[in-house]
Design a protein around this nucleic acid. Structure first.
Length: 572
RNA sequence: CGGGACGUGGCGCAGCCUGGUCAGCGCGCGUGCCUUGGGAGCACGAGGUCGGCGGUUCAAAUCCGCCCGUCCCGACCA
């Protein structure tokens, strides 16, 4: 295509609104423009990249035997009432009424719609397994959209849903999706890691997330340096410490110590000249089932997902200062488990302490020499903390390391959660009615575009992997005034285009510096420069965006060299 | 929603504390000349109800109040 005919509004300066690299560069390269918070226009170049991602996803889903469908974005409330999620989903679900005052929503996900479709159309085990997917606009009214395409409110997602006769078959499908996803992200040129994940509000029993490794990632993952264990931080298991002998019946009783103004773990540790690991902190949480206390070692951080899962609650938030005082009788900073009339949930590490320092539930006082199991008895003991750097691996005992990642894919085993809720059944070989075993599989298509930039950029701009680049080759004539250069540029352009190369000819009346800057900013993998000096030798210059390597090639070999290079980068 | 920052031609910003002479700079845009291997130069020119509403004042971009919008940090997720 001709540059002058495209709409590529590049920006010299960073827009004030963009912080994340991918957001800045997508704006600067003229690929997207914001319409409202978390809602973007895709300009021609941005759309070309998006379509590349979609094509890869489509090919690999089809290869894995999934069938493409297209479901409506607007959905009736009835289905959501039936599944129970109309009440549960919260404000993220964009709701509105149509002209007949019927409740509707803009689909954030499509379990209800797909299950409804399948329960109407699929009645026999002979039609299974069935795996349906779509690539479509989703809307989630995010609390805080950010980082451009990484967390938009409206975004493009590939969502797929599988239906199997039983758990074992569902497992086979899940594995096939796992492999298809791995192929997709590999083809997109992404450096990713697969981690075990919490299932969250989608529900189900088991799930994996596909994380693109990037420092700007919103997710933290724990990865073993020795084996292949990797998990989202919210899922990563902490290894139980060695058990401590049961506390002696007698022994030294605990003492109350006046600690005015000493509230935080750091302050308490300094006051008692103790390590944070010898302190037990008491967090007061509100839940829909009432307040609870969570006990953790002073050097550990609570994992609220684990707490939610243990308690079986969906609302969990720290109680405010007034509420803490009401429940414990003391200001924040002096809560403790001894004598506290709240259900106590203790992290397992707390229970292996021989003795610890805790709040006294009296302002300005702490207790020293408190023996867990003797002086207080938790209602439940479990793994409730976040793992930390160098924690032991729960599988092999090696060391865990923490990494940042962007979630680009998530696969779930749903089991029969939705098929039961929506009464979606089929007849098995024995003529018995059974619920479908479901799985669901999501890919953030537009997020991949951003993730690829987070991983592929330098000070000059984007560095697209060949598979995602909006164009494979940028052709830059040094001068359009000079007839020889101009003629050569158009001849090469026609030849490359005819050979199926995606080539962009920069035919603008600009100085070469401007074209070079824009070419780097746009991230086109291969740049071909045609100038009078090289043309006089019958050659062209090829520059590789990533390596910055420059080679000179005879004009009559140019097409072959380029097509070979493109093929090599696409198929490795 | 809690905490922070911000809103001035298309983009990036200054001016605001200390109200008046303040609507300005750079980039971009248009025209002409000139230039052509890393965002050139000169000249002329177009473009802004200073986010909105209300208040204080002789006078408001500037002070006060409310509202709207945007971004960043936390609770949600592809």
């Amino acid at each position: 295509m001709l540059y002058s005919r495209l709409l590529i509004p590049t920006l010299k300066e960073n827009p004030a609104e963009a912080e994340a690299v991918s957001h800045r560069l997508l704006l600067r390269a003229g690929m997207i423009r914001k319409l409202a918070s978390g809602i973007y226009n895709y300009l021609p170049l941005g759309l070309r990249v998006l379509r590349k991602v979609e094509a890869i996803v489509r090919e690999e889903m089809n290869r894995a035997g999934a069938l493409e469908v297209l479901l409506p974005a607007v959905q009736p409330a009835e289905l959501w009432l039936e599944s129970g999620r109309w009440q549960v989903y919260g404000k993220e679900l964009l709701r509105f009424k149509d002209r007949h005052q019927r409740d509707c929503c803009f689909g954030p996900t499509h379990e209800e719609v797909i299950t409804d479709l399948v329960r109407r159309e699929v009645h026999s085990y002979r039609q299974l397994p069935l795996n349906l997917y779509q690539i479509q606009v989703k809307f989630r009214d995010e609390i805080r959209p950010r980082f451009g395409l990484i967390r938009g409110r409206e975004f493009i997602m590939k969502d797929g849903y599988s239906f199997d006769v039983d758990e074992a078959q569902a497992e086979v499908t899940y594995q096939a999706m796992y492999e298809a996803y791995s192929r997709i992200f590999r083809r997109c040129g992404l450096d990713f890691k697969v981690v075990e994940a919490d299932t969250g509000p989608i529900g189900g029993s088991f799930s994996h997330e596909f994380m693109v490794l990037a420092d700007t990632g919103e997710d933290t993952l724990a990865s073993c340096t020795a084996c292949d264990y990797a998990a989202n931080l919210e899922k990563a298991e902490a290894v139980a410490p060695n058990p401590r002998p049961a506390p002696a019946a007698g022994g030294e009783p605990y003492q109350e110590v006046a600690t005015p103004g000493v509230r935080t773990v750091e302050e308490v540790a300094a006051f008692f000249r103790a390590a944070p690991a010898e302190i037990v902190k008491t967090l007061i949480y509100e839940t829909e089932q009432g307040p609870v206390a969570v006990l953790l070692r002073g050097d550990h951080e609570v994992n609220e997902v684990k707490v939610k899962n243990l308690l079986g609650v969906t609302d969990l938030y720290l109680a405010g200062p007034a509420r803490v005082e009401e429940l414990t009788g003391a200001e924040v900073g002096f809560s403790g488990p001894v004598g506290l009339r709240l259900p106590l949930y203790a992290d397992q590490a707390v229970m292996s302490l021989a003795a610890c320092i805790t709040g006294a539930n009296r302002s300005g006082c702490h207790l020293a020499g408190v023996v867990p199991g003797r002086d207080f008895q938790p209602f439940r003991v479990a793994d409730l903390r976040q793992v930390t750097e160098n924690d032991p691996c729960p599988r092999c005992g090696g060391r865990l390391t923490l990494l940042k990642g962007i979630e680009v894919g998530h696969i779930f085993k749903l089991g029969t959660k939705y098929s039961q809720a929506l009464k979606a059944t089929f007849l098995d070989a024995n003529g018995e009615e059974r619920f479908f075993f479901m799985g669901c599989y999501g890919i953030g298509v537009s997020r991949i575009v951003a993730a690829a930039i987070e991983q592929g950029h330098d000070a000059d701009g984007i560095i697209w992997p060949m598979a995602l680049a909006p164009f494979q080759v940028m052709l830059i004539p040094i001068s359009l005034e000079e007839e020889a250069t101009r003629g050569a540029a158009f001849r090469v352009y026609e030849e490359l285009a005819a050979a199926g190369v995606e080539v962009l000819l920069d035919d603008r009346d600009e100085r070469p510096g401007v074209k070079f800057k824009d070419c780097d900013l746009l991230g086109i993998p291969l740049r071909v420069v045609l100038g009078p000096k090289t043309l006089a030798q019958g050659r062209a210059e090829i520059r590789h965006r990533r390596t910055r390597d420059i080679t000179f090639v005879e004009l009559d070999k140019l097409k072959d060299v380029l097509t070979a290079q493109i093929a090599q980068e696409l198929h490795g």
